[in-house]
Design a protein around this nucleic acid. Sequence first.
DNA 1: TCACTACTGACAGTTAATGTCAGTAGTGTT
DNA 2: AACACTACTGACATTAACTGTCAGTAGTGA
Lengths: 228, 228
Amino acid sequence: MRKAERLFQLVTLLRGRRLAITAKQLSETLEVSERTIYRDIQALMLSGVPIEGEAGIGYRLDRHFELPPLMFTSEELLALILGSKMVKTWGDSVAARGAVSALDKITAILPERLKQQDQSELLLVPEFLQNKNLAQLASDLRAAVESCLTINIEYQDEQKRFSSRNIEPLGLVYWGGKWTLIAFCLLRQDYREFRIDRIVSLTCLDIQFEKLETKSLKHYLSQFACHS
Amino acid sequence: MRKAERLFQLVTLLRGRRLAITAKQLSETLEVSERTIYRDIQALMLSGVPIEGEAGIGYRLDRHFELPPLMFTSEELLALILGSKMVKTWGDSVAARGAVSALDKITAILPERLKQQDQSELLLVPEFLQNKNLAQLASDLRAAVESCLTINIEYQDEQKRFSSRNIEPLGLVYWGGKWTLIAFCLLRQDYREFRIDRIVSLTCLDIQFEKLETKSLKHYLSQFACHS
DNA sequence: TCACTACTGACAGTTAATGTCAGTAGTGTT
DNA sequence: AACACTACTGACATTAACTGTCAGTAGTGA
């Protein structure tokens, strides 16, 4: 079992690093010969662990193996299932995609008892409320937020009044059933909140804006929280 | 590595069973001696696997180890985080509790890159919208649904009209921001849908009702889906 | 008491793992 | 081209770990 323990430790050592690590360093840490490290690395690779080794550089774990496994309780899994269903229906299309595949993984390992509890569907998030176009719009907005790109939107408000604006998108908020975009409006030189389902069109302008402490989603919401 | 592989297979064999399994059966399946099985079981227990052995009965895996670890991609983890935040704010209190602890586990293993993406909070589910009383009411309703218990509710509808009814609760539906209780109303002898936030009080009656194909959440929703 | 099981120690034989040594090969710098 | 640094492989003597058989202990239920 000593070797099996060492293999586990090897993966842990590789997983915690950004830079490559040499066989010599590993052998010193684990107190074995370099030859043993070479054998261990080969064993791990044969069993599917994606290790990359470069002569003159050292070893690195493929980025996708960076994430360790997670252990959840029954209660946690049922909560994750419910949350995934909410994201699937109400989230932007990127998040919805992640939720669907996570949901597949979770249901694949559910024991019969929990599977029956989930499939009894006594707690339901209806799929038919899903709006694919809105989810895609939310994804595009999210990408603009993340990239700090100024955008132009055409917007139809509650009174059906039409407007076109250049805005700096700061973030998205889920109010339960409705997402809004918080942005800094270049026309009004102030924050504005837009319901995503009322955005008629969206155009990215390829103009990058600057992030500021006093011009952010957090700053906007701190004002809102004081009111309620 | 043969032994390490066998240890893995042992856990898998134990995990897939409800009834206890003897060392003799395991030795025949894995084609080793019983003495080796005793050694293997001891090695697994020393490394933390919760196996229970009873003389005259056999071995069983502690129930909490029934669930294997899960491996998620970055995209899936971010979706699970978003979903957990939704459940935390909008779910019933049991689900919210599960979501909070799942969220702790996920954030504990998040690499720096993803942690920063999550903490930038460009995609927000506000916690201040959480309603603890409503979440507790939802949990009580969920328990009644699961136990098929008839309940009495006092309800105030859209027009502020007050009513008191005995109902058989069939399930809960999340419409995005609002949950409704689907129930069979004993007064009207028909389905009725109640917004949870309009339920003034709830009393369990300790009268068990019968589940039927034609008196269920699914049946009710199949009618609704045809209308839209 | 008997039948069934889990459990432990001891020991000879078997198998796996280890470190040392020698050699191959790739990359970057001088 | 030579050198320094690294990854890599095969061979072999030595060491460590593992295995099955055997004998014995102990718990549970009929």
